[in-house]
């Protein structure tokens, strides 16, 4: 029982970790908290589901298409809407209430865009992963294994991209200081778009990975947003390794809570962790230099 719960919590935690990674990436790169990130996850899942069922592509190809599609959508949204707001102060600043309200409005808009395109009934995302793995009395569905493998692979790729490529270096420079990066000849606006696109692609990856477990529906983005935030805050907002660790902590805690305490209140545990960490140690596990008073 315990091992089962931890294993499943770990896999779900990877999903939260991917979303949190995107949120942290946007926060550290663009200095904004993106409240419509859950909708990116939802759109990723929907694009994946549509491609998979309509075009009959293989699951890995579906994955790639969903990632690219969502990344493109994210880039357009950032370029058209958020940049007007954040560029107001002569560059990217820690925008206050405006960007928060803007994010919520955008989340509502995207959710209902999905409502208009795909109606609100939950849709199945039927991917066959084969039989569950059974070791002794541990029962581990193969789809969870897939999640862990794909999520870890994505995280490794992201790490290599950010640490060991020139483009990654440019993104890190941009995150550090936009003015100086610009003076050093880095195309800052492009890097901002790229960062946002990568973050949205990570959310889409989480959506496509979770799709085969749950049904795909337009309201799925909202809860994951708060769980992703909880994960990001636990690890330290803006810290990338922290986001992954935070995701796993939130996932396991939620799974154990649902197993041992009460399944009804499953969704509240993440909120409680979020509030507790914000109150006690707002800088998180991997304490990062906070840009806001926290």
């Amino acid at each position: 029982m315990l091992v089962d719960l931890v294993m499943i919590g770990l896999s779900i935690g990877m999903i939260y970790g991917l979303v949190a990674l995107g949120i942290s990436l946007i926060y550290s790169g663009l200095d904004i908290v993106h409240f419509a990130h859950g909708e990116m996850y939802m759109f990723g899942a929907f694009i994946g589901m549509t491609v998979y069922t309509q075009l009959n592509l293989l699951y890995p190809f579906t994955f790639v298409v969903a990632l690219l599609g969502t990344a493109l959508m994210g880039i357009v949204i950032e370029r058209v809407f958020y940049r007007r707001l954040t560029a107001g102060g002569g560059g990217y600043t820690v925008a206050g209430m405006g960007i928060i309200i803007c994010g919520f409005g955008m989340a509502l808009f995207l959710q209902n865009l999905a409502y208009v395109i795909w109606d609100p009934t939950p849709k199945p995302f039927p991917v066959d992963f084969g039989r569950a793995i059974v070791i002794g009395d541990i029962y581990y569905p193969r789809v969870y294994l897939w999640i862990v493998i794909m999520a870890v692979a994505l995280m490794v790729v992201l790490n290599v991209f950010l640490r060991h490529t020139k483009l990654g270096l440019a993104i890190r420079a941009m995150a550090r200081n936009k003015d100086i990066a610009f003076l050093m000849g880095i195309n800052v606006p492009l890097m901002i778009s790229l960062t946002f696109g990568v973050a949205c692609a990570l959310a889409a990856a989480a959506g496509v990975l979770i799709g085969p477990i749950n049904h795909v529906e337009i309201y799925m983005g909202y809860l994951i947003l708060i769980k992703g935030f909880a994960a990001a805050v636990v690890g330290g907002f803006g810290s990338l390794p922290g986001a992954v660790v935070g995701g796993v902590i939130v996932g396991v805690a939620e799974s154990l809570g649902a197993g041992y305490l009460s399944g009804n209140y499953k969704d509240i545990y993440a909120f409680l962790i979020l509030i507790f960490v914000l109150m006690v140690r707002p800088s998180g596990l991997f304490s990062v230099e906070t840009k806001l008073k926290a």
């Binding site: 908290v33 409240f35 820690v94 206050g96 209430m97 928060i100 708060i226 935030f229 909880a230 805050v233 907002f237 909120f271 979020l274 509030i275 914000l278 109150m279 707002p282 806001l292 008073k293 926290a294």
Partner: peptide, 14 residues
């Protein structure tokens, strides 16, 4: 202790 987006998160959670 919190302001801006952090406060928004905490109150959203509550």
């Amino acid at each position: 202790r919190l302001e801006g987006a952090y406060l928004a998160l905490a109150t959203l959670g509550l």
